[in-house]
């Protein structure tokens, strides 16, 4: 501090100004997040709604033909929405049991040296960029899927072969990508269960497995649900990893069809779309945004419920 501020009561004006300024600046910083969420919502709505008036909400959401550049363009994205829902659901079905089992391993049954290998591996998986997952999906998963496809549909001439770029490949990539999220959140939920529960159960003669599945998991329920919801959010919003793996054709979401997700529809066509086509892509973005906001609200509910239970 400079020499002029020795007095307690003395000339504090400049100091006070600095204090007030600091307060104001920090307050502004804090409100950036609020501002960002508000403006993202606003802009998604502003840029997503024109197409609804141009094409019609019913035609977009319930239409099944995607032909943006035809002579009579058609912008139905029912299959795209269904693909996102079905694909997310399937990846949760695969990823969550594996993730929760791994979390049980890390929190309950693992010998220390083994946990010390698995835990960093999970952390590293979480850090791998999504494009790298996509690259590996194309070069490892797709050929495998093609073999499987050829074996299954060898005798059905009506099947359109996809070369392995299908819903199933994308689902497997998504399942792997949500693993770290599910594992980390469920692990901390399982660890948060009071030790007394376990001791009581074991003392009554239950085995370790019985204790885990009948006592610990039910007690960690809200945390595991949180993990699942976060997994859904991660899976439904993933774009780059699956955009090439899924084959990118608007199609009914059957396991061996090339399909297109909400996210990949935007990634694939944004660069050259114009006019109505572009507006519809923003509508797709808006639909995705609505899904995400619903997930966020559900998450907020669960967290609040968890806190009240804790009291």
């Amino acid at each position: 501090m400079d020499k002029n501020t020795y007095s307690i009561i003395g000339s504090n004006k400049s100091k006070e100004t600095v204090e007030r300024l600091a307060n104001i600046i920090f307050t502004i910083c804090a409100f950036i997040a609020v501002l960002a969420v508000l403006s993202i919502s606003l802009y998604m709505i502003i840029s997503g709604t024109p197409a609804i008036f141009e094409v019609g909400l019913k035609e977009i959401i319930f239409g099944t033909v995607w032909r943006p550049s035809g002579a009579e363009p058609s912008y139905g994205i029912l299959y795209v929405i269904l693909t996102s829902i079905v694909g997310t659901f399937m990846s949760i079905i695969i990823g969550v049991p594996i993730g929760v089992m791994t979390a049980i391993f890390l929190a309950e049954t693992a010998p220390k040296p083994l946990a010390a290998i698995v835990k960093p591996a999970v952390e590293l998986l979480a850090g791998i960029p999504s494009v790298v997952y996509g690259l590996l999906g194309i070069l490892i998963l797709n050929p495998l899927m093609y073999k499987l496809e050829s074996a299954i549909f060898a005798n059905s001439p009506n099947h359109q072969f996809t070369g392995g770029s299908n819903l199933l490949s994308a689902v497997i990539v998504l399942a792997i990508m949500i693993l770290p999220t599910v594992i980390n959140i469920s692990e901390s939920a399982i660890r948060a269960v009071a030790k007394d529960y376990r001791y009581t159960s074991l003392a009554l003669g239950a085995t370790q497995i019985q204790t885990i599945f009948k006592i610990v998991l039910p007690a960690a329920k809200s945390g595991i649900v949180t993990a699942i919801v976060l997994g859904v959010g991660r899976a439904i919003g993933e774009a780059m990893a699956i955009s090439l793996v899924a084959g990118n054709v608007t199609n009914i979401p059957f396991p061996f069809n090339s399909v297109r997700f909400l996210t990949t529809a935007v990634v694939a066509e944004m660069s050259y779309a114009a006019d109505t086509h572009k507006d519809v892509l923003f509508t797709i973005g808006l639909i995705l945004f609505v899904f995400i906001m619903l997930i966020n609200l559900i998450l907020n509910r669960i967290m609040k419920g968890g806190k009240e239970n804790a009291k």
């Binding site: 802009y43 998604m44 919003g237 995400i292 966020n296």
Partner: peptide
């Protein structure tokens, strides 16, 4: 609570949405 909720929301929005928003805004 409002600021923490929006911060939480912000971390839950997928990057493709940020991409669209960044492009438009």
């Amino acid at each position: 609570r409002l600021i923490e909720f929006t911060t939480e929301t912000l971390s839950g929005i997928p990057s493709i949405i940020f991409g669209l928003f960044g492009y438009v805004f």
